[in-house]
Amino acid sequence: MGDEPVLRTIIGGETVDLPGTLEGIRDSLPEDQRADFEREIWSAPLAEVPLIAARWGRPQEAHDEDEALVQQLRAGDFRGFTTPGDDALEAGR
């Protein structure tokens, strides 16, 4: 992404650079999604802009990963999830 600002996240266990500007997010979208992004981002309350930008700026793989986790939880499978009282969290693992 050159000298453009980026955000870093983990997707599928890999570090991924995401666009760090609204223009970068728009440019990264497929042409058929750009008008929807523009409409949503330009009419959003300022407090919601970071959440909207994060949602639109993430690649499809990230959305798929999130959906898989939601489906896992809906199925009652809590493997891999912890709570503040879990030993692994308290031990710093």
Rank of each mutant, 00 (worst) to 15 (best):
Met1Leu: 11
Met1Val: 11
Met1Gln: 08
Met1Lys: 07
Gly2Leu: 08
Gly2Trp: 03
Asp3Glu: 13
Glu4Ala: 10
Pro5Asn: 05
Pro5Val: 06
Pro5Tyr: 09
Pro5Ser: 05
Pro5Trp: 06
Val6Arg: 05
Val6Met: 05
Val6Ser: 07
Val6Phe: 06
Leu7Pro: 00
Arg8Ile: 09
Ile11Met: 08
Glu14Ala: 15
Thr15Cys: 09
Val16Thr: 12
Val16Cys: 06
Asp17Tyr: 04
Asp17Ser: 12
Asp17Pro: 01
Leu18Thr: 05
Leu18Trp: 06
Leu22Val: 12
Glu23Arg: 15
Ile25His: 04
Ile25Trp: 09
Arg26Trp: 05
Arg26Leu: 10
Asp27Asn: 13
Asp27Trp: 01
Glu31Gly: 02
Glu31Arg: 15
Glu31Asp: 11
Glu31Ala: 15
Glu31Phe: 07
Asp32Ala: 14
Gln33Pro: 00
Gln33Ile: 06
Arg34Ser: 04
Arg34His: 01
Arg34Val: 08
Ala35Phe: 08
Ala35Tyr: 06
Ala35Arg: 13
Ala35Gln: 12
Asp36Phe: 13
Asp36Met: 12
Asp36Lys: 09
Phe37Thr: 03
Phe37Gly: 01
Phe37Val: 04
Glu38Met: 08
Glu38Lys: 00
Arg39Trp: 07
Arg39Leu: 11
Glu40Pro: 00
Glu40Lys: 05
Ile41Pro: 01
Trp42Glu: 15
Ser43Tyr: 06
Ala44Met: 10
Pro45His: 10
Pro45Asn: 10
Glu48Met: 07
Glu48Asn: 14
Glu48Asp: 15
Glu48Lys: 01
Val49Gln: 09
Val49His: 02
Val49Asn: 03
Val49Tyr: 01
Pro50Tyr: 07
Pro50Ser: 12
Leu51His: 10
Ile52Glu: 09
Ile52Cys: 09
Ala53Ser: 14
Ala53Pro: 05
Ala54Lys: 03
Ala54Ile: 00
Arg55His: 14
Arg55Trp: 11
Arg55Gln: 13
Trp56Ala: 00
Gly57Ile: 03
Gly57Trp: 03
Gly57Val: 10
Arg58Asn: 07
Glu61Asn: 00
Ala62Leu: 06
His63Ile: 05
Asp64Asn: 11
Asp64Gly: 01
Asp64Ser: 09
Asp64Gln: 14
Glu65Gly: 06
Asp66Cys: 07
Leu69Thr: 01
Val70Thr: 12
Val70Ala: 12
Val70His: 02
Val70Gly: 00
Gln72Val: 13
Gln72Ala: 09
Leu73Ala: 05
Leu73Phe: 11
Leu73Pro: 04
Arg74Asp: 15
Arg74Glu: 15
Ala75Tyr: 05
Ala75Val: 03
Ala75Met: 09
Gly76Ala: 07
Gly76Trp: 07
Gly76Arg: 03
Gly76Val: 04
Asp77Ile: 14
Gly80His: 08
Phe81Ile: 12
Thr83Asn: 05
Pro84Glu: 15
Pro84Cys: 10
Gly85Leu: 14
Asp86Leu: 09
Asp86Asn: 11
Asp86Tyr: 03
Leu89Pro: 00
Ala91Glu: 15
Gly92Thr: 08
Arg93Tyr: 11
